[in-house]
Design a binder for these strands. Structure first.
Length: 172
DNA sequence: GCCAACGTTGGC
DNA sequence: GCCAACGTTGGC
């Protein structure tokens, strides 16, 4: 009784593995910064849709594409993994932080973040223009007109297509 | 630098 | 609850 239930649980858990794309302006925080830091808390997200994903959906072990926005060139710079699930974003409570939100109550936090660690850089980085040329990626949230979300879901098929384009192997 | 798209704010 | 004004994001 216990074993089949546990096995099914583990199977579901494995099947539930998800993929994401996180945007960062490299002038603010780049993939190279993450390599240097070895891990980082993804703070400063102040959009409710993105918050909901960070708080509720992003799980330990999920894969993350680290995207450089507002840059020349715009690229997927590397792969990351989620090392801690959603927890309250401390910058919201710090009056000195540019992400300070005086309306966020520490006993009922508004804003959340996750911890990520680098897996590998993409060498060379995968340019946005290249992504746009791939039919399998036509529906990527990133490439939709007007798409501004800084935390986006990536389908398993899109994840595989991106890794194939980059010549990267899934390594965890 | 421009501006489309989108989210938020606040008057009513 | 509507919606106009405003601010921000981020590709181009």
């Amino acid at each position: 009784m216990r074993s089949p239930g546990y096995g099914a649980f583990m199977a579901r858990k494995a099947a539930a593995r998800r993929y994401w794309l996180f945007k960062s302006e490299p002038d603010v925080y780049s993939f190279q910064d993450l390599l240097r830091d070895r891990k980082t808390f993804w703070d400063g997200v102040r959009n409710y849709q993105a918050r909901n994903m960070l708080r509720d959906d992003v799980a330990v072990g999920d894969g993350v594409l680290f995207y450089h926005s507002n840059a020349e060139p715009m690229v997927v710079a590397g792969l990351c993994k989620v090392t801690k699930a959603g927890s309250p974003d401390p910058t919201a409570f710090d009056p000195r932080s540019k992400y300070h939100d005086p309306d966020s109550d520490p006993s009922d936090p508004t804003w959340f973040g996750v911890e990520v660690a680098p897996v590998c850089a993409l060498e060379p980085p995968l340019e946005r223009d290249r992504l746009k040329s791939v039919p399998a990626l036509a529906d990527m949230v990133l490439l939709q007109r007007g798409s501004r979300l800084s935390v986006q879901p990536v389908t398993a098929a899109e994840w595989r297509a991106v890794l194939a384009l980059a010549g990267a192997k899934e390594s965890w």
